[in-house]
Structure formats: structure tokens, C-alpha cells
Computed example of a mutant assay.
Amino acid sequence: MNAPTTTDAPPLLRRDEAGIAVLTLDRPASRNALSEALIGALTEELDRIGADRSVRAVVLAASGPVFCAGHDLKEMTTRRKDADRGRAYFAEILGRCSAMMQRIVRLPQPVIAAVEGIATAAGCQLVASCDLAAAGEKARFCTPGVNIGLFCSTPMVALSRNLSRKHAMEMLLLGETIPAAEAARMGLVNRVVPAGSAVAEAMRLAAIIASKSTLTVRIGKKAFYEQAEMTLAEAYDHASRVMAENMLARDAEEGIGAVLEKRQPIWTGE
């Protein structure tokens, strides 16, 4: 369990199971909104996990009927009383949240969202920032900022890197709630399962990942996001260098040898 950042109950829970770290947003009374405390707790726990080589994959879940309602608008609104009407605070909290989202992308271990209920605004951004996502069939997704005069600009960054431009703009401009099946068709989630089964499916996917060479998975995740920001020629050059280096790893030698010898590989993470 993460140490609380205030005197209240911790907003984030952690348990570990067979090399999988399960992080649970635990502010159900506040619809798991991304408060200062929850952003801070996620940031701290992701940093701990990134440095922990025993963790092979991460599952991100939530308590209660809502996965995440986005930013804590009540918390943010109180800062309108500041002398600058909250300008400095808004920039700071949005920057902290964006940095937390980027930690998920840069984390060596794959992160799988397990979504039940609704993921809206920055909550939808959180799902899009994860490497994979499993959703219960009753889950819903939305970037409704346009409906309240506040365009979902930061969620837009994650959406536009996961969905086609037309699908991302559809969500951002219409602000409509889409069901899990439509989210899967758009590419926001990987699996749609019976309601209440999202965590089980995310754990199943995480277990498959955990059975692979940790070195190979770390190399692959890092290279995937690096090449995505490059031109086609740059991406191929970069991927070729990464793969040539990967070929020299002991796990690659072991894995290829296992195929040729028709046996199961024994991974060392080296």
C-alpha cells in the first residue's frame, strides 16, 4: 500500500501477485477523480515500480462503480479565489498530471488498464496512456470537456496517439459517451469482457507478459514509443539498431536456442 500523502485514507492501493503490481484507484466517493493526492500517489508508486525489477507488469484498476471521473473539479474550482484566479495552480496541477501520464508510457513494465464503469476526461486519458486496456462490457468512455466549455486538451494528446485522427476528434468534438464495444472498435481498448471481469482479464494479459523475458519486454516497450515519434526512415534505422543490440542479449540467445532445440526457454533477464 502506498503511504498516504495526507492524513486521510490513501487514495491508491497496491498489491503484488506473481510479479504483477496491481494499483487500485481508491477514491470511490469522489468517483476516483485525479486529486492532488491521487496524482502524487500514482507518481510515487510508478517510480517505485519502475525501479523494482521483480515487477514484470502492472494492472491499473479502480474501486467503486466509476473507473475515473477525470480531474477533481471541486478541488480545482476552489483555486479560482486565488489572486490570479487560479492560473498558476491550474498550470501546475495539469503539468503534474501530464508528467504522471508520461511516467506510465516510460515505465519499463507494461501497464494494463482494467476498466469498469465510466472513464471520463482525464480518466479516459489515463486509459489511453496505458499500454493495453481491458474493459467490462458495461464500461463507457468520454471526453466531455467541450460540453462544459473546457476542451479536453491534455486527454487529446493520449487519444490522438492511440486512435485515428477522425475517431479522436469525434470523441473530443462531440463529447458523447461511447460504450466499451465502440471503444474497442476505435482502438482505445484491447479486450471487452463480461461486466465485472476486467481485472481478471487484465491479470490474464499481465500473466502472459510476465512469462516473457523481462529484458525483451523492456527493450520492446521503450523502442515502440521511441520509434512512434520518428519518421519512417528514422524509425527503421532506430529499430534495426535496437534489434541488433537485442540479438546480443543472453535471453535472445537462449530463446533462439530453445526454438532450434524444441524446448522451453529459461529466461534470466540478461
Rank of each mutant, 00 (worst) to 15 (best):
N162W: 05
L42S: 00
T43H: 07
T78H: 14
K222C: 09
G255S: 05
V146K: 03
P155S: 09
M169L: 15
A114M: 09
K212D: 14
S213G: 12
R15A: 11
R204E: 12
D16K: 09
L150P: 01
G50H: 05
R191L: 13
M1G: 12
A91D: 15
S54M: 08
R85T: 06
E229A: 14
G117M: 05
A69V: 09
G220Q: 10
A99T: 15
A113W: 06
T6I: 08
I209D: 03
A122T: 03
E229M: 13
M76C: 10
G40S: 13
C130A: 09
D47I: 05
E92R: 15
R161T: 12
A198W: 03
P11K: 00
D26K: 00
L172R: 00
P194R: 11
L174S: 12
R165Q: 13
C152E: 11
M203D: 04
C124F: 06
S213M: 10
N246G: 08
G175Y: 07
E116F: 02
R106E: 15
F224P: 01
L73W: 13
R53M: 07
I20M: 06
G70V: 03
M100E: 07
E226R: 10
P10K: 01
E253M: 11
A99H: 15
Q109F: 07
V192L: 04
A135S: 06
A83K: 15
I209A: 08
E254L: 04
D237P: 07
N2G: 11
E170I: 05
V115C: 02
L260A: 07
L73H: 14
A88L: 13
A128I: 10
T5P: 02
A128F: 02
P110N: 14
V189L: 07
T24C: 07
R204G: 09
R79Y: 15
N147I: 05
C130H: 03
K221H: 10
S129L: 05
C68D: 01
R241T: 11
N32Y: 04
M1Y: 10
D84V: 11
V189Q: 02
E245P: 05
T6K: 02
V189P: 06
E92Y: 11
R27F: 00
L159F: 08
